[in-house]
Design a protein around this nucleic acid. Sequence first.
DNA 1: GTCTATAGTATGATAGAC
DNA 2: GTCTATCATACTATAGAC
Lengths: 192, 192
Amino acid sequence: MTEKSTRDNIVEAAHQLFYEKGFDHTSFADIADAVNISRGNFYYHFKTKDDILKAVIDQRMAATRDMLDAWEKEGNTPKERIRCFIEIMINNRAKIKKHGCPVGTLTSELAKLGHPALGEANEIFTVFRDWLRRQFEQMGRTKDADELALHVLAGSQGIATLASAFRDDKFIKREVEALGDWLDAVASETDA
Amino acid sequence: MTEKSTRDNIVEAAHQLFYEKGFDHTSFADIADAVNISRGNFYYHFKTKDDILKAVIDQRMAATRDMLDAWEKEGNTPKERIRCFIEIMINNRAKIKKHGCPVGTLTSELAKLGHPALGEANEIFTVFRDWLRRQFEQMGRTKDADELALHVLAGSQGIATLASAFRDDKFIKREVEALGDWLDAVASETDA
DNA sequence: GTCTATAGTATGATAGAC
DNA sequence: GTCTATCATACTATAGAC
């Protein structure tokens, strides 16, 4: 069993810290401490802070694609797959209550920083959007699939933001159910 | 006509910059430059960065209360008042596309910073929540008024986050309309 | 109330030994 | 590949003149 490379450890620690503390507020020292390496060594692997941000975004994009592919291959109906997406809110509620949505909070921070990597971070949203759109298309909603996809995304973002503010499990459960009911209604409209 | 005090100018500039650039990323130098005073003078008015954050939050809280009071006094129906709230998304869409929701982005930043003022910032959400709850109560929804209030808040947060990511006016308009339709449905349930 | 000057610290980043 | 210096910069904050 091969050990994980230092580079991988750095990306993993940075990913975690950026989510917990924010990108700007996380220093190289924070990451180096978490990985137990010196700051000097750090620079052997990443030249600038933007480089490591890019690596973190790339990793999250890849992980997102893998997750969506896995749901796709489980052979359920498109409706059940969309429900997998909605239920991330339930499964990850502990983290979401503490730090919000990993994608939503990163993009809004990068937007405020005027950071050049904002476009790449927004691409993660696009990956979700396109995947959801395809699911709705497979449900037969070819005309408004993209609009429906955005509605699901917006719903999940709203839940994440308020979950973080009010730390209320019942709220999360209730809103996830409401989004599920909405999905059922969309599906039954299409069947009819 | 009395000139605005330097203190007021500082709070106003800080408020704007915190919204545009984020709290942590805004330096005293940025604020001092915007007000055209020296950094030294700055410290005469505010001892620490946390002090000015507190002043900014207090000002926003007061402005929020004033806005909600004004809507309340316009003598419309509770449903029309809630619609005023929803339509902030349309009226402020230019700023929201650039910087997101002022309250949502501030609270999520403070949460990541582990900042002690997070509770106070979250209170702004509570002001909206309580006001919305009262409107639904006046509509006759005494049992689930708070749940409905949170649903409206969550809806607006979702719209703000995605509006900022995709900068899409049509998306905003469509989701605001959907939230308005939901409100109509709630109202008609109650009438029946 | 406003300014200049400056202290003290943390940060991003580099150079060079091992 | 990893380390120990070290630099330059930006930041929060203070002291003291006007």
